[in-house]
């Protein structure tokens, strides 16, 4: 869809305070590109048909081989998956005229097939490897593709794999680890991701125009450390001080970044997490359930309202500064 010159809110505001006719309102929606026109539909149908088609065909192939799996020779099993990976990469590399987005979809498909390849290898040779080995190998194998593609969906897959590898490593390879420690590690990993996606240090920034990927990574990081700190407050676990320090450092960095780059998500998410931690800390010493519930509800209402007030003031100031530029 083309970026409209006016947006929906502008049209809503003007129509609310004028005698603009319905017919001309509709015409403005169409001409400004808010309602999808010819070019938008062409783009959408192009990606929808190939995306859905490829997904169905691949799934059909996978199911077919799953059905015949036991009777297939190991060479055919491995060869099939490897051929599919090779075909995807060959198309990406050799077809110069192919649309960038389709190349990225094929690269993401190849990345998923790498995992299938490792799974098949493990199944044939009964390597006895831990699940963490498979995810680690998968993650490392697609690292370079992820770095060069800049495709947010592939980065998201990579992020999921890193999280899975970390969780499985902690579960399978380390002796008894508290939940608070695992959550602290997850915070570190996802905070690093949020940083990587936001930064341009790699020379080729991730093409994440809407910020959904960095937002997801930030949400994962903040949720992990918030749960860790709350668990520490409730259980008084040994890892509490480290998770608290990580939270303070991470939240401070997040607030600084949010203010500097005008990212409202960070400025809403982190203070809300702080509210939850504060409430946990406040109610922990009390034994009166009636009082606790009432106090908690008042605190949530009061603090959230205060936070919203500040965010709205900040948003207004940013808008004013933008109009002055």
């Amino acid at each position: 869809m083309n970026e409209p010159s006016v947006d929906r809110e502008d049209i809503h505001l003007v129509s609310r305070h004028s005698n603009w006719t319905a017919q001309n309102i509709q015409a403005t929606f169409e001409h400004s590109g808010i309602y999808t026109g010819k070019a938008g539909w062409r783009k959408f149908l192009n990606f929808f048909l190939i995306g859905l088609g490829l997904a169905f065909v691949l799934a059909g192939i996978i199911f077919f081989f799953a059905f015949n799996w036991a009777s297939l020779h190991k060479v055919i099993k491995l060869g099939l998956v490897e051929t599919l990976i090779a075909v995807c990469i060959a198309v990406v590399v050799l077809n110069k005229r192919l649309d960038e987005k389709i190349k990225n979809i094929l690269l993401a498909t190849a990345s998923i097939l790498v995992g299938a390849l490792f799974a098949v290898f493990g199944q044939i040779y009964q390597t006895g490897a831990d699940a963490y080995d498979l995810f680690l190998g998968w993650t490392l194998a697609i690292l370079i593709w992820t770095l060069v593609s800049g495709f947010p969906v592939l980065w998201f897959i990579f992020m999921l794999l890193c999280n899975a590898t970390l969780c499985l490593y902690i579960e399978q390879r380390t002796s008894h680890v508290e939940a608070i420690e695992m959550l602290s590690w997850l915070f570190g990993l996802n905070a690093l991701f949020a940083l990587l996606v936001e930064a341009v240090a790699l020379g080729r920034p991730v093409q994440d125009k809407t910020g959904w990927l960095s937002g997801l990574a930030a949400i994962a990081a903040v949720c992990s450390i918030t749960i860790a700190v709350c668990l520490g407050i409730i259980d008084r676990s040994p890892g509490f001080s480290i998770s608290l320090l990580l939270a303070i450092a991470g939240f401070a960095a997040g607030i600084w970044y949010g203010l500097r780059h005008r990212k409202l998500l960070y400025l809403a998410l982190i203070p809300f997490a702080v509210i939850i931690i504060l409430i946990t800390a406040i109610v922990r010493p009390f034994n009166d359930p009636v009082g606790i519930f009432f106090l908690v509800s008042l605190l949530i209402i009061g603090l959230t309202t205060l936070l919203i007030m500040q965010l709205v003031k900040l948003n207004k100031r940013w808008h004013e500064e933008r109009t002055e530029d």
Partner: peptide, 12 residues
Amino acid sequence: SGLLFFPGLLLL
């Protein structure tokens, strides 16, 4: 697999 493959092929 048939119910996935053939509609997928049709879409492609």
